[in-house]
Amino acid sequence: GLPEGWEMRFTVDGIPYFVDHNRRTTTYIDPRTG
């Protein structure tokens, strides 16, 4: 799974992105792969 505090969501286009609730940021880069 994802690191603690992270969540995976999808855009309206079906593109996955990642929400970091710890820092309240979003990124398209998987936190597991950097």
Rank of each mutant, 00 (worst) to 15 (best):
R9I: 06
W6K: 01
V19G: 01
G5V: 02
D13Q: 11
R23Y: 08
T11P: 01
R9K: 13
P31C: 14
R32L: 07
P31W: 01
E7P: 00
G5Y: 05
F18K: 00
G14I: 00
M8L: 10
G1Y: 10
Y28W: 15
P16D: 02
D13S: 11
D20L: 02
L2E: 01
R24G: 15
Y17A: 03
L2Y: 03
R9H: 10
R24Y: 10
T27G: 07
M8G: 02
L2V: 03
R32I: 07
F10H: 10
P16Q: 09
I15K: 11
P3K: 05
V19I: 14
G14Q: 07
L2P: 04
R24A: 13
I15L: 11
Y28I: 12
I15H: 09
G14E: 05
V12W: 12
E7T: 06
V19D: 04
V19Q: 04
T25G: 07
T26A: 09
G1Q: 14
H21R: 08
N22M: 13
V19K: 03
T33V: 12
L2Q: 01
T11I: 01
D13M: 09
D13V: 06
P31R: 00
D20M: 02
Y17M: 08
T25Y: 14
N22S: 10
I15P: 05
G5E: 05
F18D: 01
G14P: 00
F10I: 10
H21V: 12
G5W: 05
R23V: 07
R23I: 06
T27Y: 04
M8W: 01
T11D: 15
D20R: 02
R24E: 13
R24V: 09
R23D: 13
V19Y: 15
E7S: 06
T33R: 06
N22D: 09
D30H: 02
G5D: 04
D30V: 00
R32P: 07
E4N: 12
R23S: 15
R32N: 07
Y28E: 12
D20A: 03
G1F: 11
T25F: 14
V19S: 02
R24L: 10
W6T: 02
H21N: 10
Y17E: 08
T26K: 15
F18H: 00
P31L: 01
T33F: 09
P31K: 00
V12S: 14
M8R: 08
I29P: 07
E7W: 01
H21S: 10
R32F: 07
I15F: 08
T11K: 01
G14W: 03
N22Y: 11
Y28V: 12
V12K: 14
I15E: 09
T25A: 07
M8Q: 09
R32S: 08
P31D: 02
P16H: 06
E4M: 09
